[in-house]
């Protein structure tokens, strides 16, 4: 099949970008979306032109590297699917496809479709962990976790850190990503000792990074390839509120 691609090209963070149009004639149904872009890139290289830069790696929907906004939707039209798992059978002959980077204030564009999502790492660094050193752990089965809690924790922990939630949010908020991590630990007994401190620190870092506020539009959940639920945002908000009037809050303030 034939497709017409309008792709965002931007040399670097300083120069302005614009859409360029490319036509591809022999796209196969079985190709993944990124394989279709591979075909374009191979063609561009042979013509002596710079290929389109985009992030990707596992191509299995798990590493969270791929990050394209396709026809206005982060990760494209198929529900619960990353860009790399989207296949061309979801498109028709003659389709025009608009491809942009994940756009958000906290994700500066690096080049073409590549953005800087290191803000997510800094949020994790601020508190997205359980403070246990290697060697300190007790025997695994001495910590019992009701199956329901383990399942809930896993539902939240499935987040791949792709940032589609941020790109989908009109405010550029990172509530789903942060909510998922906060909830993952909040459901587990191991996560309790640091529960308040964690949410305070992660939210504080989130705000520092320039992510927007949540106005309950739920665009994040709709775009999330792992179907992370907005109920985790609610859980985080509750935890944050509780933590804000606790001893831990004082600790955070004193450490400022």
């Amino acid at each position: 099949m034939k497709v017409k691609l309008h792709i965002w090209r931007q040399k670097n963070n300083k120069e302005k970008g614009k859409f360029e149009t490319y036509e591809l004639n022999n796209v196969l149904e079985d190709m993944s979306f990124l394989e279709m872009l591979d075909v374009l890139n191979e063609k561009l290289i042979l013509e002596g032109k710079e290929p389109v830069a985009f992030d990707h790696d596992c191509r299995e929907g798990i590493c969270g590297a791929c990050s394209l906004t396709i026809n206005g939707i982060p990760h494209g039209p198929e529900k619960a699917t990353t860009t790399c798992q989207l296949h061309m059978r979801k498109f028709k002959d003659g389709d025009e496809i608009w491809i942009e980077p994940f756009r958000a204030k906290a994700f500066p564009i690096i080049k073409d479709l590549v953005v800087d999502r290191s803000a997510f790492d800094r949020i994790i660094q601020a508190g997205g962990f359980i403070s246990v050193n290697t060697g300190q752990a007790p025997e695994a089965n001495s910590i019992l976790v009701p199956k329901q809690n383990a399942d809930n924790a896993m539902d939240a922990a499935q987040c791949i850190g792709c940032g589609a939630c941020v790109a989908a949010c009109p405010n550029g908020a990172a509530m789903l990503f942060v909510g998922a991590k906060v909830s993952h630990f909040a459901y587990l007994p191991q996560g309790q000792p640091e529960r308040k401190l964690r949410v305070l620190k992660m939210v504080e870092q989130m705000q520092k990074e320039g992510f927007g506020n949540c106005s309950n539009l739920y665009e994040c959940e709709a775009a999330c390839p792992k179907e992370i639920s907005v109920r985790f945002i609610a859980l985080m908000n509750r935890d944050y509120l509780k933590a804000s009037c606790s001893e831990e809050k004082l600790e955070v303030i004193n450490n400022e």
């Binding site: 246990v132 060697g135 752990a137 025997e139 695994a140 910590i143 199956k147 993952h184 587990l188 191991q190």
Partner: peptide, 14 residues
Amino acid sequence: DQCVAQGVPFAREY
């Protein structure tokens, strides 16, 4: 043991 302590949500029985 270490992974459980870190909060890895391994599959559980009821």
